[in-house]
Amino acid sequence: MKIGELARRTGCAVETIRFYEREELLPEPARSQANYRLYAEAHAQRLRFIRHCRALDMTLDEIRTLLDYHDHPRQPCDAVNGLIDDHLAHVEARLSQLQALREALVNLRSRCRGKADSGHCGILQELSQPLPAEESTGLVDSSHVPGPHRGG
């Protein structure tokens, strides 16, 4: 099948498929005489595996590791369990960060009722204040910003 068919069958964008090839997550497909990529069912299965991992917010490095275990089924799976445990710990940490962010935003929102002009807006006034890290060290600590800041 050509790349467009693979994309339709797996729900994955053509450019994403090419990206996974460049990252060597998907093996290079055969080529037709006209130099079109020709994919097999194994490519579709592997792409589904990768997409499932990405839906779980796994990094490319984590996916590489899981694919290695998938491709070499005689390896013990305790390392797979460890990888999932580590990923779960990362998710728990992100949840804590997001909860702290939510609380900060709720607190910020409570500073303004929307009745005054923006020159007297409590939100804008609060955002103009130094962060606690700035007050004590003179440096800004951006570690409070949640999100997928992991490598890969």
Rank of each mutant, 00 (worst) to 15 (best):
D71M: 02
V80A: 03
A34R: 13
E41S: 11
C77V: 11
I84E: 01
L98D: 00
A42V: 04
R22N: 15
F19M: 12
D68C: 07
E62C: 08
C12H: 05
A55Q: 15
E15R: 10
F19G: 09
M58K: 09
L47N: 09
E28I: 11
E62G: 11
H52N: 15
D71A: 04
P76L: 02
L88I: 09
C12R: 07
C53M: 15
A55M: 10
A30D: 14
M58T: 11
R102W: 00
I50A: 12
C12Y: 06
G11R: 06
R46K: 11
R22Q: 15
T10R: 00
I84V: 12
T16G: 00
V14I: 13
Y36T: 09
F49R: 06
H90P: 00
H43D: 12
Y69N: 08
D85E: 10
R64V: 04
C77N: 01
H72F: 01
R48H: 14
H43P: 09
V14Q: 02
Y39H: 14
L66S: 04
G11C: 12
L67F: 10
C12I: 14
Q99M: 09
D61N: 12
T10V: 07
P76Y: 02
R31G: 07
P73A: 07
P27Q: 13
A93Y: 05
H72M: 02
Q45D: 15
P73T: 05
H70L: 13
L47Y: 08
L38A: 08
R51F: 01
R18T: 02
A42Y: 02
Q99A: 12
L25F: 03
D78Q: 10
R102G: 02
R18W: 00
V80M: 04
V14H: 02
R46V: 07
P27K: 13
R74A: 09
H90D: 05
Q97L: 05
T16D: 01
A34G: 15
L56A: 15
L26N: 09
Q97N: 08
L67Q: 10
S32F: 07
D78R: 08
H43R: 12
L83F: 01
L26K: 12
A79P: 02
N81Q: 11
R18Y: 00
A13P: 00
R37M: 11
D68I: 00
L98A: 07
S32Y: 06
L67K: 08
I50Y: 07
Y39W: 11
R46Y: 06
E103P: 01
P76W: 04
H52K: 15
R18F: 03
Y69T: 07
R64D: 03
E15S: 15
S32M: 09
Q33E: 15
R31W: 09
A13W: 05
P27N: 14
V80S: 03
E23K: 08
L56F: 09
T59Q: 03
I84C: 04
L88W: 06
L38S: 10
H87N: 10
H70Y: 14
M58R: 08
E21T: 04
Q99P: 01
H87F: 06
F49N: 06
D57Q: 12
C12V: 15
D61I: 03
Q99H: 13
L67M: 07
I63N: 01
P73K: 05
P76I: 08
C53W: 11
N35E: 12
L83D: 00
I50V: 13
T10P: 04
G82R: 07
E23Q: 13
E28A: 15
R94T: 02
R102T: 06
R94K: 08
Y36R: 10
